[in-house]
């Protein structure tokens, strides 16, 4: 008799665990693969998730696609501080289109160009993530660097970089989109007051802090000013590289926010709190980090590049 109880508990425990796993794992809506990614779309707990090769790329709240995204994507709206009425913005890396949805909703006047390497990703984004191609939004299928190289006619007020490759070990920056030469190329295609935003996956003083330092140094080697924001919900640091030589002070920042509020009275509510997280000082790890170049960008590290 004594042996029966634990057995029953064990069995029900297994059943419970399976049920829990089922509810957390959610319902797979799509499983497909392209030349670059294994793509999974999944609905779980009221959210729709996009995964590439196991790594989560996008989260979207099902009842309202404007919510549920990762906080870091909101910092991609910060270029508005430097130019409240940008004409044209370039986004590299579509994923599940969190930024496209936000821009199309909050700033429908801005012309958006998206560069995405994987056509399948765009198809999935349109079908499952409310991404629309409109007269104001065109998706280009190209490598980001080649796109900038071949672009000789257009100037962008902002270039938003969120192009990553993913595998089951995590996400990695394609090195040719993270070197000094690349940023020089991007800077040429920016307007005079243009801003480049770069999503760096890492933290200030622990996990991947070395890549955060390297990215800061590399951006700083091309742009006069680099500001950064640490997302509070994920390990992302979003860097804002500004072409304008004018440094930001608390007064000029206050003025810029006021000017932006005047130009766009219907800014999303999160905008203010996000601006408040701005940092201007170099991250600690930048002190012994090197500049990444086309010639030298250690693959084992983009993780740990040393000063040379």
């Amino acid at each position: 008799m004594a042996g029966i109880f634990p057995k029953q508990i064990g069995l029900s425990g297994v059943v419970l665990l399976l049920a829990l796993a089922w509810s957390v794992q959610g319902q797979v809506r799509l499983r497909t693969s392209s030349a670059y990614n294994q793509i999974t779309v999944e609905d779980a707990g009221g959210y729709r998730l996009l995964r590439f090769n196991g790594s989560m790329e996008t989260r979207m709240w099902l009842p309202n696609p404007l919510f549920g995204h990762f906080e870091y994507t909101e910092y991609f709206q910060m270029p508005l501080l430097f130019n409240p009425k940008p004409q044209r913005v370039l986004l590299m890396g579509l994923g599940g289109g969190s930024m496209v949805r936000a821009f199309q909703h909050y700033y429908p006047d801005i012309h958006l160009d998206t560069v995405e390497l994987d056509a399948k990703v765009a198809q999935v984004a349109k079908q499952f993530f409310h991404v629309k191609e409109t007269a104001k939004h065109k998706i280009h299928f190209s490598d980001g660097r080649q796109f900038l190289r071949l672009n000789k006619t257009r100037k962008y007020d902002a270039i938003l970089m969120d192009a990553y490759t993913s595998n089951q070990f995590g996400t990695h920056i394609p090195f040719h989109l993270a070197t000094k030469e690349f940023f020089a190329l991007a800077s040429e295609d920016l307007t005079k007051e243009g801003v480049l935003v770069f999503n760096v996956i890492g933290t200030y003083d622990d996990w991947r802090s070395d890549i955060v330092g390297s990215m800061y140094q590399t951006l700083k080697s091309v742009f006069p000013h680099v500001y950064h924001f640490q997302a509070s919900d994920t390990r992302n640091i979003v860097m804002l590289a500004v072409k304008s030589k004018e440094p930001l002070t608390s007064t000029t920042l206050k003025n810029k926010v006021a000017a932006l509020r005047a130009a766009r009275p219907k800014l999303p509510k999160f905008f203010g709190p996000r601006v408040a997280r701005i940092r201007a000082q170099a991250p600690k790890s930048a002190a012994n980090a090197g500049v990444l170049t086309d010639d030298f960008a250690p693959p084992g590290g983009l993780l740990k590049s040393k000063k040379r």
């Binding site: 660097r145 080649q146 090195f175």
Partner: peptide
């Protein structure tokens, strides 16, 4: 080759 032709397959 990657900087010239992109990080393509």
């Amino acid at each position: 080759l990657q900087p010239f032709f992109g990080g393509s397959f």
